[in-house]
Design a protein around this nucleic acid. Structure first.
Lengths: 256, 256
DNA sequence: GTAATAGTGTCTGTGAGACATTATGGC
DNA sequence: GCCATAATGTCTCACAGACACTATTAC
């Protein structure tokens, strides 16, 4: 690839003469877990598979990584192709790579999964695109409830559970929660994000104190407005602060 | 692959008839960062490259993932082949996957990196094997010091820095530190592990109190013995406890 | 004996969690 | 006016960090 400057004449000669050796033929894909909050519930985007295998099962958006793109870029591109949603690759966080030999019954496929966190209001509704017969958001609790019996393709249930865990723990020590909200929000909105992701009820007063005691987590705007989630009465508005790490963290130790 | 039971007759027919489609030809490798403590300093294992590109540079042990093995298994196997060291794949923790298109000047290579933590005493010395002209441990501080000027191959410096960060933060909330030590150790030994990995000096008394206040982190053996690192006088011996998560955690907040 | 390290005790500040109370605004 | 929620205050406990002090053992 062009950017590389050989370290010696000998190495340059080696590279010019280089003929690719045989290596195992492994397909490489990227999948993406998009979390958002719909009606106060943590949800994620799935697409319905239009073809075999796992036809009509629900799957994470994703697909092959092209020869000249990173897996981040591939995740972002595939998302656009399959759902019409645009998320820059810089908002994606790498979750984990799944490489069990038989995770796809067709052939050997290794997949790197990414996660993203988006305010529902900004995202709009997905439209089913390439290879997908449908696309919409599922609340996590419905997804894993026995009543609903939603069938997931491949090992995507594992990926989703790993992603959920990552999201839950990132909420503790990063300002991730603000990414689920529009630019301005109330502390109740913020609290509802924590409650949705952790699946717990938090104590209103203590939560407020903790958030305000964490420097640069949120910045008060000095004005009042209604909650984004449309509940409660008007309250003080905030925007996201400039910190990247929460000190002290907002911990979920059995707490309330 | 054989384990999969088709979900319908139609799907079975599809799979039987399936002819692999074209997909980008991407090579897949696994690399491994092995941390250990040598003479009280955090060190890692590197092998000297025997061939181009990056001939004579130092690189992480690693290599191609075979068609029928996971990347964990590949990491473990390659380690054995290149250095003669045996580490079960279950002791490996996945770090991250590196997929920038031009990270290898020969061809498109995606690599999943793993980390492992091993007591130096149990590991023995590595021997250069396949493709490697030398193999030994480097102290992290030497590796990144300007004096030494050690040349690292590919993007392995990035991988090592990511791995170091992971190790440092895992030390806080998991009993990882005990993995660097033999079965029995003193609290000084344990403290020296933290000091080596974090690159800081810790307060002896406070450290002791914190460790003993964390349930099931270490179990006293009721006997005394010398330090593994050969320093200090005899002290109470401990072995690793049975907890997987430290509560409370051993934090490194500017602390001492 | 001396010096270094092992090990114990105490004080202070911070933050979490529980709980009580007041303020505000929609209905 | 009623009620849910916003917002503030107070108490207790747990733990981090600082520091002082005693005990043990290698030399």
């Amino acid at each position: 690839m062009s950017e590389y400057t050989p370290r010696s004449a000998e190495e340059a000669a080696f590279l010019t003469a280089y003929a690719p050796k045989e290596y195992p033929s492994i397909a490489y894909t990227a999948d993406i877990v998009i979390f958002t909050i719909v009606n106060g519930r943590l949800s994620l985007l799935l697409v319905k598979r239009g073809g075999h295998p796992y036809k009509d099962c629900w799957a994470l958006p994703g697909g092959f990584v092209n020869f000249d793109e990173s897996s981040e870029d591939a995740a972002s591109r595939e998302l656009e192709e399959e759902t019409g949603l645009g998320i820059s690759s810089s908002f994606l966080e790498q979750l984990k790579t799944y490489s069990t030999p038989n995770r796809d019954p067709r052939m050997r496929v290794v997949s790197t999964a990414y996660i993203a966190f988006i305010p529902y209001e900004e995202l709009g509704n997905p439209e089913a695109g390439d290879d997908a017969s449908d696309a919409h958001y599922f609340a996590i609790e419905d997804l894993f409830s026995d009543d609903e019996n939603i069938e997931l393709a491949f090992d995507h249930e594992t990926i989703i559970r790993d992603g959920l865990e990552r999201a839950q723990s990132k909420l503790e020590y990063t300002p991730l929660a603000t990414q689920f909200l529009p630019e301005t929000f109330t502390l109740s909105d913020l609290r509802r994000v924590y409650e949705a992701v952790w699946g717990t009820q938090l104590h209103v007063g203590n939560f407020r104190r903790k958030v305000l005691n964490t420097p640069d987590f949120v910045t008060p705007l000095g004005s009042k407005g209604g909650s984004t989630f449309g509940e409660g009465r008007t309250a003080e508005l905030f925007k996201a602060g400039k910190t990247i790490l929460l000190h002290p963290a907002i911990l979920r130790g059995e707490n309330k």
